[in-house]
Design a protein around this nucleic acid. Structure first.
Length: 300
DNA sequence: GCGACAG
DNA sequence: ATCTTGTCGC
């Protein structure tokens, strides 16, 4: 199987060696864990969404296991004037503390404004955004924060991730070997050794899956009552799930596995933390990073 | 060759 | 990602 020879991608006057990035992704991919790799319990949301009621599956006797409590979210916001200036954020929510407005209490937040040198290239988001996010995580660990997240929700995909000329891959029956399936959430999960979930607000087209196709499927007669569809590509592979996270949301979010968690558990946790379309950890990281940037861009 | 392409 | 007006609804 010949590897694609497009080893560089140009942006501005710089060239970037995406060939070495592909190698890095392949190396890190070997460490991926695609099943639950933790001991805590994820609450199951009840069918009624009137309040934040939930129940815990009562297994035999699992005293050592506890409910998941601290869930993090990370995101970057960008300057409207200079798209290379960004504010990275990490927030941690306490799922055991629900405020009057129904949202979870934010128990930790941190920000860093950076000047990004690497452009956004589809398929290589991690090389642009992961370094500063890793810094924020490492800082927490270094300071022994009691709020270090048990699971991290990432603004970007996990396994739902393509590479190169996908069509050609299918034609040559090499799609299994050539599909990277290693997005930002996987990258962060492996490099920080933390369970991660990828949250996409738009679908990165992969394996025959298209945003319009998913929309049609969700709006079909037979599926209009369903709020979740598994994203199975034309190769038969499962990439993640499209989820109508709120009662009235027409546009789904795209959930995929990052690291050390199963798709089933990821969906449970996403459902539990969705007060609006985007799960609260990611939503708070998004809102707060934008606010922080606007208030501090001038004085930095 | 052309279009598609998370954030 | 960001630029944008109004607008419908709880």
């Amino acid at each position: 199987m010949e590897e694609e020879t497009s080893t560089s991608s140009s942006s501005d006057d710089q060239t970037f060696d995406t060939g070495s990035w592909i190698i890095a992704q392949d190396l890190l991919k070997r460490r991926l864990i695609l099943e639950d790799n933790f001991t805590w319990i994820i609450p199951t949301t009840t069918t009624t969404k009137s309040s934040s009621q939930f129940f815990v599956k009562e297994d035999d006797d699992i005293d050592s296991n506890e409910l998941i409590r601290y869930v993090g979210g990370v995101d970057l916001s960008f300057s409207k004037d200079d798209s290379s200036i960004a504010c990275a954020s990490i927030v941690v929510l306490d799922l055991l503390q629900i405020k009057n407005d129904g949202c979870f209490q934010v128990v930790y937040e941190d920000y860093k404004i950076v000047h990004l040198q690497i452009p956004y290239i589809p398929g290589f988001l991690a090389f642009r955004e992961a370094p500063v996010l890793l810094e924020l995580l490492e800082k927490m660990k270094h300071e022994c924060s009691p709020f270090y997240p048990q699971c991290l929700m990432v603004d970007g995909n996990g396994l739902l991730h393509p590479r190169g000329n996908w069509r050609r891959c299918i034609e040559f029956f090499h799609f299994v070997m050539n599909s990277l399936r290693f997005g930002l959430a996987c990258f962060l999960g492996v490099t920080a050794d933390i369970p991660t979930i990828g949250i996409g607000k738009n679908l990165h087209h992969v394996d025959g899956l298209t945003q319009s196709g998913v929309r049609e499927f969700l709006e079909a007669e037979e599926n209009c009552s369903k709020d979740l569809i598994t994203l199975t590509g034309c190769s038969g592979r499962i990439w993640g799930a499209a989820l109508r996270s709120t009662n009235d949301s027409l546009k789904p979010i795209y959930v995929s596995i990052g690291h050390r968690i199963s798709l089933e558990s990821a969906i449970k946790l996403v459902r539990f933390t969705c007060k609006y379309r985007v799960p609260e950890p990611v939503r708070q990281a998004d809102i707060r990073s934008r606010n922080f940037l606007q208030k501090n861009q001038g004085i930095m």
